[in-house]
Design a protein around this nucleic acid. Sequence first.
DNA 1: GTGAAAGCGCTAACAT
DNA 2: ATGTTAGCGCTTTCAC
Lengths: 353, 353
Amino acid sequence: MTNPPGSDPLAGAGRPTLRMLAERTGLHMSTVSRALRREPASDPTAELVHRAAAELGYRPDPLAASLRSGKTGAIGMVAHSLTDIAQAMIYEEVDHYVVERGYDVLVASTRDDPGAQRKRVELLLSRRVDGLLIGDAHRDGDYVDWVASLGVPYVLVMRGAEGHPSVTCDDELAGRMVADHLVECGHTRVALLAGPDWSAASHGRAVGFRTRLAELGAPLDDDLVESGGLHAATGRAAMERLLARRRDFTGAFCASDFVAFGATSALAAAGLRLGDDVALVGFNDLQAATSLDLTSVRSPQEEMGRVAAEMLMGAIEGVPAVSRTLAPQLIVRGSTGGPAASALAADVAGAGA
Amino acid sequence: MTNPPGSDPLAGAGRPTLRMLAERTGLHMSTVSRALRREPASDPTAELVHRAAAELGYRPDPLAASLRSGKTGAIGMVAHSLTDIAQAMIYEEVDHYVVERGYDVLVASTRDDPGAQRKRVELLLSRRVDGLLIGDAHRDGDYVDWVASLGVPYVLVMRGAEGHPSVTCDDELAGRMVADHLVECGHTRVALLAGPDWSAASHGRAVGFRTRLAELGAPLDDDLVESGGLHAATGRAAMERLLARRRDFTGAFCASDFVAFGATSALAAAGLRLGDDVALVGFNDLQAATSLDLTSVRSPQEEMGRVAAEMLMGAIEGVPAVSRTLAPQLIVRGSTGGPAASALAADVAGAGA
DNA sequence: GTGAAAGCGCTAACAT
DNA sequence: ATGTTAGCGCTTTCAC
């Protein structure tokens, strides 16, 4: 297995090692190792070594380095699912940020399954990641508390949890903004198609929405609340249940754009027109929201990813992580009577080939 | 760095090692190492060792094992972007398949940038992945040929390339199916909003579409072809350019659903109604397609992911990889005059909290 | 600055 | 089946 002659795509010598570099330069391995980490042009030795490395096509072996040093130069990111564009956007930004700094990201997807969450974190840990980005936190702190107890630097992203460092959107504010907007548009009886309550993000949106509605004198009727998932199918089902029960609401806040898409088809099937009969607000401002002319809240995913990565790398170097909350932005479109066919949203996600 | 007393969350003894297990059981390290890989109940020694391991909370160190054995138990997946739901779905399936078999996935995103492609593959290689899944192949073979030359098992997924093992959707067939459908619906002058030609997937769709139209006696007019990206913004821009030039087409095939979403807003802005004035077909059958009532081609992403992972793991064990092509499926909806508000598509992607 | 020696945790020849 | 002996490629003490 160890360089059987001829099995290596490079020359017969096999993948170049530090020792080979040492022989070639007449220096000692340790000297070479150190010189390699100085700037190429900082001194004659460094330059000599760097040139030799380039000639041999030397690539350091992070495995061996990690084994000895205890640092892997990799962080782990645990996502609930990368098919959630929000998580994918966060990942992309983290990947970009971190790779530029010589780090690497190992991802894991848990589908929000508690068993998988622990298993994947353990896997990441056994690969010795230097820190963890947790994108699948649940509000009941069990999982996150356990992560904290591991003694590894960590930062929550997108979904926060009490007492843990996190980078999130101000979901409660977002909920309030939506309430303000709907009431301003004249809707006094509105519905809520909420996401799972164990997600601090969904929870926060619902709380802000409800609180602000009460403050505005248009309190949310519990009979007009449906809760469930974040998918189009659950959104459709929720809206269907709602419509079977009541038809006297004139607006609704959906936990995500996908839910809004589902709700839209339920409305259409019931002969109700989006915007005219029922005003809808989504969440995430996906590209498709533009086509449906859907009012939506844009939460700053890229920024969350960048800030979380930055914070985690700081934590790895000993800077204590302090939670941050980023501002959401309401994008008004036709589904709440805003200007129809408004300018296209920032082109963040693409797909298909 | 190596277990400074008190810095470890576990007992003062530090993370348990094979040596500690050996001392505790009175066996030799190598014996323990081997016993650990036998079934727990296969013989008395194995049982003894497994129990001791459980008591100590022993977790093998893959780093050390890899360094010695040359196998990491990890595969690398290179994606062009995980914000492409198609790639995310493939990743999710790969992750699931591979983790179940004791492997791990390291992802990398290249945004289709040639520099990043090589850099990330090299990074994955320096982490010593046992094989590569390439999701960002370009039709000009440079990159892929280079990957092949590395001597590491690899499989292309979603986008194929001549002479390389791949798992793809039959994109050409998909293009033909769309042509058949549009012509059957009575459209004889149709447009094409194509994706990038360097993607074998986009290219195949375009070729199939064009070829079949010609066979049906309704050849594609070059003046009705716009090509570009796969995003909503590019789709909108493309449709706007097209409309500025011609208004005599009655149907269009879009490279992806996102493009179709963009095209839809362009149509709306021009006062044209989807389905009535212009029939549209998308690609990927995203959830949002349902809400827009968009006819779309469903390509079997999950299956692609699973088959590709399976093929790669086979290749790692020496089974030669043989390319496979999976069948697409046309989902007819209102945008081509199909039944409006049809049943909701399979609930594959969710999002937002 | 550099060289020497030790060792990270594990697996893979060898013997026995 | 078990013990012995090496050693993966690198970093990190320690001396000088």
